[in-house]
Amino acid sequence: MSIDEIVTAYHAAMLHKSPDELADLYAEDALHEFPFGGPPPFEGREAVRTGYRAMWGGSAFEAEEVRRVALHRTTDPEVVVVEQNTHVVAAGQRVTVPGLLVLRIRNGRIIHTRDYMDTSAISQVRAATAP
């Protein structure tokens, strides 16, 4: 898969809240990190699958749209930076969650992700869906 195809498929997995679609984009020994907080790193494709199944399966929000704002290629041909906005509905409240993905892609698979999400927007989503 090309970088553009991987980013498009990544966003589709987010929209569908599909841990299987997402994990299938990763190399077997990949690493997915959340530098601004959140869960501990997911080490390996199956940890990505399990981690996202727990996160998305236990959340009461629905993704309406995942919009690619920009795709920045770097001087390293394996690394791209994706600016994105995820529009979600949580308990009837619409929230936009801005984010950045720093992806290292090798041989058509993601080998490393740094997943930066706007923590204040994530807090809004959690507050809206709290019991």
Score class of each variant (00 low, 15 high):
Y26F: 03
G58N: 01
T74A: 09
R94E: 11
A47I: 01
A60Y: 08
T50R: 03
P35S: 01
R45L: 05
W56N: 01
G38I: 07
F36C: 06
G44T: 03
G58R: 02
A63R: 13
M55K: 12
G38H: 04
G38A: 01
M55G: 11
R68K: 10
P77Q: 03
V69L: 01
E65L: 14
R53M: 10
G37N: 03
E62G: 07
T96W: 09
E83M: 05
V48L: 05
Y52D: 04
T50L: 11
A70R: 07
V88L: 02
A90H: 05
H72K: 02
V81D: 02
T74H: 06
V82Q: 05
T96D: 10
G92F: 03
S18I: 06
A90Q: 01
G92W: 00
L22N: 08
D29L: 02
A12Y: 14
D76R: 14
F42N: 06
F42R: 04
P19T: 15
G58E: 02
A12P: 15
P39G: 03
R94Q: 12
A23D: 03
Y52P: 03
F42Y: 07
R67A: 14
V69F: 08
M55S: 14
A23T: 03
A27S: 02
R49V: 10
Q93H: 06
A54W: 09
R53K: 13
A60V: 04
T75N: 12
H72C: 15
V69I: 14
E21W: 08
A90T: 11
V81K: 01
G92K: 00
R45F: 07
G92T: 01
H72N: 07
L15K: 14
E46K: 05
E83N: 03
P40A: 09
Y52E: 02
D24F: 11
A47G: 11
E28K: 07
E78K: 12
A70S: 12
V80H: 02
R53C: 11
